[in-house]
Nucleic acid binder design. Structure first.
Length: 309
DNA sequence: AATCCGGGGTA
DNA sequence: TACCCAGGATT
């Protein structure tokens, strides 16, 4: 198929130099794919490199405490990914690395996309991936809101049996740097002659709820160079992460505003200088805080008051 | 099929 | 501000 050739040729010329494209280690590719779930490439790169330096292979990850894994993940979001990755590492360390998409799919945290991505990139299996980029590119080629099933069928029909890894990555790369959500660069698209849209008309944007404003008061208490932190427990959101204890607002300055994308909330944090130890709180030095799974809000607050660099 | 799960980039 | 990002699990 001509479309395939054009796409692969373009990818060969224009692909970005990304760290996970420099390895053939299935474990490293797996880690990258988990981190890339709903997370931009630019945000993942530093996390990926730190994570692999800390947990260089499946065994290192499987035997590490979950808190260490969460600490490495702190700030990346979707912490269930880290929990699933850690749990799956134990399974892989025991049973070996699954060699097919079907087997990969059985691991926690690996769905249809990630199974196909790892199988194709690490093992050369001709399994088409469908992510946000592929959805957009295929919908535009067809000029319509195709179902996920239809998109998958088309991608599977186009995929190169010789180099499925390059084909999958090429389709995603095209969506990421040419066929972008808004203002796509149609004139320099290798697939323009196959495209029925040549604009950003498809797919139809999905509407969302209006953001909710919320105010949060936190206690910033220091004692002998230590700061008081509380571990969230029994919460669906950010369970196990460390944050500043909550306090009654009297007066003070706004430390940070954090937008929670999924919760669709804008949270304004205010400081309440405190001295006493809150129930269940613990005191940490700067060095210790660096090794904790902190919420992003807590990280921003601690930076704003100069406790963290 | 809907909803939940983080955080950040971008126009 | 609104939308989206190399999605998965749960209901």
């Amino acid at each position: 198929m001509e479309l395939r050739k054009r796409l692969l040729a373009w990818y060969g010329r224009k692909k970005r130099d990304l760290p996970w494209r420099r390895t053939s280690d299935p474990y490293a590719i797996w880690v990258s794919e988990i981190m890339l779930q709903q997370t931009r490439v630019a945000a993942v790169v530093p996390y990926y490199e730190r994570f692999l330096a800390r947990f260089p292979d499946v065994c290192a990850l499987a035997t590490a405490p979950l808190d260490d894994v969460l600490a490495q993940w702190s700030g990346l979001g979707y912490y269930r990914r880290a929990r699933h990755l850690h749990a799956a590492a134990a399974i892989v360390a025991r049973d070996g690395f699954p060699g097919t998409a079907k087997e990969l799919r059985a691991l926690p945290g690996i769905g249809a996309y990630t199974a196909a991505a790892i199988a194709s990139i690490a093992f050369g299996e001709a399994a088409a991936v469908v992510d946000g980029n592929v959805e957009r590119v295929v919908c535009r080629l067809a000029a319509g809101d195709l179902t996920k099933r239809e998109i998958g069928e088309r991608a599977q029909a186009w995929i190169s049996p010789r180099s499925p890894a390059n084909f999958n990555q090429a389709l995603m790369e095209l969506g990421a740097i040419v066929c972008t959500p808004r203002s796509p660069s149609c004139p320099r698209c290798p697939l323009r002659e196959f495209c029925a849209t040549r604009s950003d008309r498809w797919p139809t944007p999905r509407k969302r709820a209006a953001p909710i404003d919320k105010r949060v008061e936190v206690v910033f208490a220091t004692r002998g160079g230590r700061v008081q932190l509380l571990r969230r427990s029994g919460t669906a959101l950010l369970d196990g992460m460390w944050e500043l204890p909550s306090g009654k607002q009297t007066d003070g300055d706004v430390l940070a505003t954090v937008k929670h994308g999924v919760l669709n909330q804008r949270l304004s944090y205010r400081v309440w200088p405190g001295r006493r130890t809150a129930a269940g709180a613990r005191w940490f030095t700067v060095r210790e805080v660096g090794e904790l799974p902190l919420t992003t809000a807590a990280r921003k607050c601690l930076k704003a008051v100069g406790f963290l660099p």
